[in-house]
């Protein structure tokens, strides 16, 4: 038997203090945790995924409307300066622009409001699934504490796990919403939809969507993570499953 008995870890009558683990280790463990519970994690993430898809599609149609407006205004200006002879199509577009400006703005605002409500509902959903995940893993959490995990480590574990999920889900959600609306506009407006500041607007919306999605998931995890950290280590000894 070659296990070193040389040093027991500390002298009698004294005790050390547990060290903080590097973040890298926590990320590694969280990542594995998501991987093994992949489908369950996906369901947790689905809420934020759909919420962000809805949000980004609403915002993106707003952006397309802006691009179209800018395009029509340009035509109008050109006509007024006499640089362009108005075609029938041009007249129709200009009439469209002036006709229902206010109404369209109102409906856009309504949709945005709806999508924000949707995101809030998703946040509650994530809190719920993370709470379930804590309950499901009480034994695992208790065991980790028995092995020397500090409360702060458990908190980190849950935050990293959910934030990672939130990040990926909102990125994918953005891509879905953005693609759907882009395809629709490609058919309704044609290539002019992708002129103007289309790419710049898309990039800004992507950053916004990912930021909102990640932030909401983070907020949704505060309560479950604290609950997990407060789990007594003796939970590991409970026998019932």
């Amino acid at each position: 038997m070659s296990v070193d008995q040389a040093q027991r870890t500390h002298p009698r009558g004294s005790i050390g203090r547990q060290i903080q683990l590097p973040l890298k280790k926590a990320i590694e463990i969280s990542f594995k945790s998501i991987k093994i519970r992949f489908w369950r994690s996906m369901i947790t993430a689905m809420g934020i995924f759909l919420g962000i898809a809805f949000f980004s599609s609403v915002r993106m149609s707003g952006e397309f409307a802006n691009i179209q407006r800018a395009y029509i205004l340009q035509i109008k200006e050109d006509i007024e300066k006499g640089l362009r002879t108005p075609s029938i199509e041009d007249t129709r577009l200009i009439a469209l622009l002036e006709e229902n400006q206010e109404e369209r703005q109102a409906s856009e605002n309504r949709m945005l409001w709806l999508s924000i409500m949707g995101l809030l509902v998703c946040t509650v959903g994530i809190t719920n699934s993370m709470l379930m995940s804590v309950t499901e893993r009480y034994k695992e959490i208790g065991t980790m504490k028995c092995l020397g995990a500090l409360d702060s480590f458990i908190v980190k574990l849950f935050f990293i796990e959910s934030t990672l999920l939130g990040f990926i889900a909102s990125l994918l959600g953005f891509i879905l919403g953005w693609m759907l609306i882009s395809i629709i506009n490609l058919f309704t407006q044609g290539v002019i939809a992708f002129g103007g500041n289309f790419w710049w607007a898309s990039l800004k919306l992507m950053l916004l969507s990912v930021f909102i999605g990640t932030l909401l998931t983070f907020l949704a995890t505060i309560f479950p993570a604290i609950r997990a950290a407060k789990m007594p280590p003796s939970a590991a000894l409970r026998v019932e499953i």
């Binding site: 005790i15 695992e140 504490k145 092995l147 020397g148 500090l150 000894l237």
Partner: peptide, 28 residues
């Protein structure tokens, strides 16, 4: 007399736990 960090140290270094239900971390 121990605070949370000292207790965690004790659980980590001085005591080893074995459970009826094994309690291995399933993802590892």
């Amino acid at each position: 007399q121990l605070d949370a960090q000292e207790l965690a140290y004790l659980r980590c270094h001085t005591i080893g736990y074995i459970f009826q239900t094994f309690n291995l971390i399933p993802v590892m």
